[in-house]
Design a protein around this nucleic acid. Structure first.
Length: 177
DNA sequence: CGCCAGATTGACT
DNA sequence: GTCAATCTGGCGG
């Protein structure tokens, strides 16, 4: 289990550190799906034009909540899965963009695809990932070394002049474009 | 209550 | 490569 302190850090650092971690989804019928996080992006506060924190609403408020809070929101008919980082009152989050399925077979190479495959919807919004319930995160004991590639964020209209997308080099499940 | 932009995806000229 | 479907959140564009 990964503790809260892991998320009380700048979003870009958390986005790097969370690569290679295992996301565990326990479904209502007792099933378990495990998948490795292979691609992420960092989003900051009101000074980040691509961040939902520029809007004065529920999304900014959620980004200001406690580290480890799950933020789910819909764009273009897709749910996007984020984890809040930093201290309370500081708007920041990490977007999970792609997963590598471990014990199942389904497409997870995109932010909208992985929420469908892992059955992550609005019901997780403002829940915490820290308590080991139906959605939790753990270290991969057998993780081999991997290189991290940086790039600019994908799909955003106004990006920052900084590379805030991170993914595992050579991984087949990284979203393309 | 209506309008519109958007951190997407998939189908198609 | 281009483009439209589809729906949520924010705001009165």
């Amino acid at each position: 289990m990964i503790d809260k302190n892991f998320f009380v850090k700048p979003a870009d650092l958390v986005a790097r550190n969370i690569l290679g971690k295992i996301l565990i989804r326990k479904t209502n019928d007792g099933g378990i799906k495990k998948a490795r996080i292979v691609e992420t992006e960092a989003y900051f506060d009101e000074s980040d034009p691509a961040s939902r924190a520029v809007q004065n609403g529920d999304l900014r408020a959620t980004m200001q909540m406690d580290a480890g809070t799950i933020l789910v929101y819909g764009v273009h008919n897709n749910w996007l899965f984020n984890i809040v980082t930093g201290r309370v009152g500081e708007a920041a989050a990490v977007l999970i963009r792609a997963l590598e399925p471990i014990n199942f077979d389904s497409r997870c190479n995109g932010p909208g695809l992985l929420t469908k495959s892992m059955d992550i919807g609005k019901s997780f919004h403002q829940k915490s990932i820290l308590f080991g319930n139906s959605l939790s995160l753990t270290e991969d004991k057998n993780q081999n070394h991997f290189d991290i590639v940086e790039s600019f964020r994908i799909g955003v209209r106004m990006d920052l002049p900084k590379k805030l997308r991170f993914y595992i080099k050579g991984n087949k499940n990284v979203s393309r474009k």
